[in-house]
Amino acid sequence: MYNEPQTISKERQLYLKRQKRGKQKVLFWQIAILVLFLAVWEIAGQLGWIDTFILSQPSRILHTYANLTQNGILEHIGVTVYETLVGFVLGAALGTLLAIVLWWSGFISKVSEPYLVVLNSLPKIALGPVIIIWVGAGTSAIIVMALAISLIVTVLEMLNGFRSTNREHIKMARTFGASKHQIFTKIVFPGNIKTLFNSLKINIGLSLVGVIAGEFLVSKAGLGYLIVYGGQVFKLDLVMGSVIILSVVAALMYEAVVLLEKAVTRHYGR
């Protein structure tokens, strides 16, 4: 812990100023690149350097957004967000639960190891058609898809975290006569809050991948559907517009996890 002195020294003032200026510079360029990119894209389209039918154009994308309610984008966003959240929550909960079982029983964990390795390296998208046949072409197929993609990663990540819990902490708890259940709830789990959130951050992205892939296949609703549909009818404005919305949705969901992490860590005083 550094004690901030009451009166800030000149050197410190200079240091803080430099830091601030450095940050502003980075932010400036981040925004500038985006603006520049959009401007070049727009102008190139206006001047006919690029084919806006294939590459679309910022103004045309904006126009698509203006008719949000008309072309139902809002509903599609809602569908995708809903499916992603359900897949994400299920994946995180089920994955953590399985990791707990594997941590608990060395035997089960040894037996299941080769299966986990194979499942982990299998491209889960390949299961898409099978999933649709099993659970039907609808929302549930999409959620199962998201689950399939995120589950094994969560299990492995959490298990790894549980296993690398500080041995000495566990020994300390054992000296007080802690049961396995107590060791888990009082040492292993709270010691892995960071692992949990790291895995949630990976998970939110993976669930979205699963949902979009699922929507491509099921083709009924959602941003994934919109992208496929837009591609088929050559409405590239719709495709580009949806992709942009998708990245915003992904960023917002990620941010939500980061905020949740901050709240939880603050509660644990770290």
């Binding site: 000495e168 902490h169 020994k171 300390m172 000296t175 040492i187 709270p190 809050i193 005083g269």
Partner: peptide, 14 residues
């Protein structure tokens, strides 16, 4: 009846 103190304090950071 036995208290055991280890080499590290093992205080839980959280």
């Amino acid at each position: 009846q036995v208290g055991y103190m280890l080499q590290r304090d093992n205080l839980l950071e959280w």
